[in-house]
Design a protein around this nucleic acid. Structure first.
Lengths: 209, 209
DNA sequence: CGTATCGGATACATACTTGTATCGTGAACA
DNA sequence: TGTTCACGATACAAGTATGTATCCGATACG
């Protein structure tokens, strides 16, 4: 047995910066490839290639492809929450805040709607894999909670009453952005970005246009 | 050149009943397996096995897996349109008709929400494959047209004005059912079936509850 | 009743993918 | 400056997929 008071070896760093960087590059590449090819269509090989590594690096950082998806979905959900809270921090009118939140929920600007594609991909994968389902459901819940918080804040400060519970409103908003953006990927021009905020949002808020 | 007036050979049947039956069984099996495993995850082998055939039968009826998806998505869209028009034919009140149409759009009863899963799967595949995209976009358009027709009929006979164009309304409805049912697959109990018709629909119709 | 052909089975060639086991190199620490 | 170990590369072992080429039996027709 090892000497009790001698810390076996405080490793060079908790997790070295280098390791962190490779993980990040692999995750970036993975988000591209998953969006382009889907979970099964994406190969570990292509992900590593695009990240500039070989599969050796991959299996040194992730235990499997499924493991990678868990990490990736977590990171993506955190990014969404980040965008939501950032949009909420702007000192604009409550309506503007809600619009911005809608937009933030939809996708990262300039990313060619990759994020919503990934979300769909994660969801489908989660339907089929129990581990991924637990993880993804937790992430979705975090996103919903962030949204409920923001929406509650916005509507009380504007002193309006939603025609449904805030939770329902948030779920509807999420389903709607998800569904409409997916549609737009096969039929550009269908239900444009702005229409959701300008046409549907007021109706859902119960505000006469 | 063949003698003009002698029809070369009116084949046994345009397409023999037996062939038709096999194709149908394969399509049924395919809709199960695609829903369970996704496009890439589904193997031709498993589809055939479940249909009670070997791959020989498959490649004798379809030229490839992609070809199968095209046929399957067409069949599925036709089923949806069938359900929609059937729901519209009921001589109920316009509100009831719209509710029924919503429900019909969502899924085939008793099919464990397989249809909406397939729809998502088709959509994702269509995003990535040009051929599938053309076919699926056409099917989606047909569904929308059927919906616009029904909705227009229902609202004029009830003499109300939508707070948006009928086309927008229909797109919103489709995005919403699609998105919410997908959510429900990973988190049962989220935005229940009835809530859409009873809570959201009236709001979208611009009717005070 | 013989026969052509259709429909499906079998067998095969080929290509890919995942994951493991092993090895080498360079950075950080004593 | 020597040494160790972390990190990533290389090589390998299976397993699995698609699609093709060929074969065989049943069915419909003359």
């Amino acid at each position: 047995m090892p000497p009790p008071s001698a810390p076996v070896s405080p490793p060079r760093a908790r997790v070295s910066a280098r390791r962190q960087a490779t993980r990040s590059r692999v995750l970036d590449a993975a988000s591209e490839v998953f969006a382009e090819r889907g979970f099964h269509g994406a190969t570990v090989e292509e992900i590593c290639e695009r990240a500039g590594f070989t599969r050796g690096a991959f299996y040194s950082n992730f235990s499997s492809k499924d493991d990678l998806v868990i990490h990736l979905s977590t990171r993506q959900a955190e990014a969404v929450i980040e965008r939501i809270t950032a949009a909420a921090r702007t000192e604009a009118s409550p309506e503007a805040v809600l619009g911005a939140v809608f937009a933030a929920l939809a996708d990262e600007p300039g990313r060619h709607e990759r994020s919503v594609l990934l979300t769909t991909e994660f969801t489908l994968h989660a339907i089929r894999d129990a581990g991924a389902r637990r993880a993804w459901a937790a992430q979705q819940r975090r996103i919903r909670e962030a949204l409920v918080w923001v929406v509650d804040d916005a509507i009380t400060s504007r002193d309006i009453t939603l025609p449904m519970t805030t939770d329902q409103f948030v779920r509807v908003a999420m389903a709607l952005t998800q569904g409409s953006m997916t549609q737009r990927l096969i039929e550009p021009g269908a239900l444009e970005r702005g229409e959701l905020e300008q046409v549907v949002l007021p109706v859902l808020l119960g505000v006469s246009p």
